[in-house]
Design a protein around this nucleic acid. Structure first.
Length: 455
RNA sequence: GUGGUUGUAGCUCAGUUGGUUAGAGCGCCGGAUUGUGGUUCCGGAGGUCGCCGGUUCAAGCCCGGUCUACCACCCCA
């Protein structure tokens, strides 16, 4: 019995039309990556399980797709009642495999090492709009340099990508040191990560985060202090809330909170440095400090970035990143700071589609279709076809001598702009009739003039 | 991983308190037009009503399970 064809939850097929649009995104991002001096890298779809576990926090570990052992290994693991029925797993992101690669190849690599990587990743998440179980990340990382100029360059890269994609975005910048400093100031440094994660939700649930902090038994005095500094109802709208930078800086200086002060200084350096280089034209763009930006991944230690679209209904981030000081340490390479960003191509696709921002002429490659009138005519077309192709014009010959309506419909469906007609008459006269599919006009020219007409 | 909503033609959706042969628009195929698509007119094909089970004389409709998409958590690109 035939089974109903289907694909796993959270995965998708991409039709030719969708692929043309996806490639437009990938090509745009890749072009900018290369322009900024990043070199391509690919790593395997699967890694050893132990390479991935423990790098993404407790929640992250749960979402790793594990690969079941096979054959005798599996039998043994089951028999022994072992908990490790998997020894390998699909990659969860591109950053950890990159860190693994750097450590493994440290003697061959010239530092600072700038690589980009555009590959799918897998997460055993429950799918939703804009959340897939298989999706592409487009990463660019610089490892082996502590300079904040890398942060600056990456923010400018982000700006350039979204300018090229003609999308309005908000780029938010924060710093883990500022966040930990803030936690210190509140006296909750022992639960700093938990606190910071909660802070990150303010964008979404607003002042209810303070209630949730109390629910989770953070000291009331600390929560009240946080409320005085962050509360939307006290500070008003979002714009004045992000203007808290100076206030926080003063607070950290007064309390000789060096960590927090250092974090804010870094933020200021990055934002001040990019300012003169932001484009004056093109799509709308905001870059701003946001103390309530935290990001979930455990390994960030310095700057953190997040980008959200200002158009369309997707509220989740379409690009994110940050600095990690010790990602390679766990693989045995100390003192190797890195900073990177990751574009979510699938989400960018969803936003561009919804907002109608894809360029109109992403049609297929074929520029000219030769209509097929039968064997003799087709053989003649074959010669012309070669000449046209040699001139660098993508062209094809309809393979069957079916009626014209069907052949023209084929050209129409495929978005082929020109159709060359060589029937009995044209063959006799040594000419070719070329139809412009968009205007509907057609004219007869000498066959030698065909290429010039198409240019 | 927790809770919820959903599923009818390729697509978007109708379908009465459960009642005989499940409809529409768009798309698709054929014809009007044996050398012309996108517009027009005429005709046609296409459904195990997501899947499995239950209740009932009778289920697209009620009940249970399951899968999918989606929503809220969780987390994230």
């Amino acid at each position: 019995m035939a089974q109903k064809p289907s694909i796993p939850k959270g995965t998708r097929d991409f039709s030719p039309q969708e692929m043309l649009r996806r490639k437009y995104i990938f090509n745009t991002i890749e072009r900018v990556f290369q322009k900024y001096g990043f070199l391509p890298l690919e790593t395997p779809a699967m890694e050893n399980l132990e390479t991935l576990t423990g790098k993404y926090g407790e929640e992250g570990d749960r979402l790793i797709f594990k690969i079941l052992k096979r054959g005798a290994d599996l039998d043994r693991a089951v028999q022994e009642g072992s908990k490790s029925l998997a020894a390998e797993a699909l990659r969860y992101d591109l950053t950890v495999p990159f860190a693994r690669y750097v450590v493994q190849n440290q003697h061959e690599i010239t530092f600072p090492f700038k690589r980009y990587q555009i590959q799918p990743v897998w997460r055993a998440d429950r799918p939703q709009k804009g959340r897939y179980r298989e999706f592409y990340q487009c990463d660019a990382d610089v490892i082996g340099s502590k300079s904040l100029l890398n942060e600056v360059d990456l923010v400018l890269l982000i700006v350039e990508v979204f300018q090229a994609l003609n999308l309005n975005v908000k780029i938010m910048v924060n710093n883990r040191k500022a966040l930990f400093g803030f936690a210190q100031y509140l006296g909750v440094e022992d639960r700093a990560v938990e606190f910071i994660t909660k802070l990150d939700k303010q964008d979404k649930i607003g002042d209810r985060i303070f209630d949730e902090l109390l629910d989770e038994e953070f000291p009331a005095s600390a929560v009240e202090k946080a409320r005085m500094i962050l509360s939307e109802s006290i500070l008003g709208d979002y714009e004045s809330r992000v203007g808290r930078f100076d206030y926080l800086m003063e607070l950290f200086v007064q309390n000789t909170n060096d960590l927090g002060r250092e974090g804010l200084q870094e933020v200021r350096f990055v934002l001040d440095s990019i300012k003169p280089h932001l484009p004056r034209t093109g799509p709308g763009l905001t870059t701003e400090f946001n103390i309530a930006l935290a990001r979930g991944l455990d390994y960030y230690t310095g700057a953190i970035f997040e980008v959200k679209a200002l158009e369309g209904s997707l509220q989740s981030s379409i690009c994110g990143g940050g600095r990690y000081d010790d990602l390679t340490g766990i693989f045995g390479l100390k003192n190797m700071s890195g900073v990177g960003i990751s574009f979510g191509a699938d989400r960018i696709y969803d936003v561009l589609l919804e907002t109608g921002k894809f360029p109109a002429e992403l049609g297929g490659s074929t520029k000219l279709l030769f209509a097929n009138f039968g064997e003799a005519e087709a053989m003649h077309c074959l010669r012309l076809l070669r000449t046209v192709r040699e001139a660098g014009i993508p062209a094809e010959l309809y393979p069957d001598a079916v009626k014209m309506a069907k052949q023209f419909k084929y050209a129409d469906d495929k978005g082929i702009p020109y159709v060359a007609i060589i029937g009995e008459n044209e063959l006799k006269q040594g000419i070719v009739t070329v139809k412009d599919m968009k205007s509907g006009e057609q004219k007869a020219v000498e066959q030698d003039a065909l290429i010039d007409l198409l240019r």
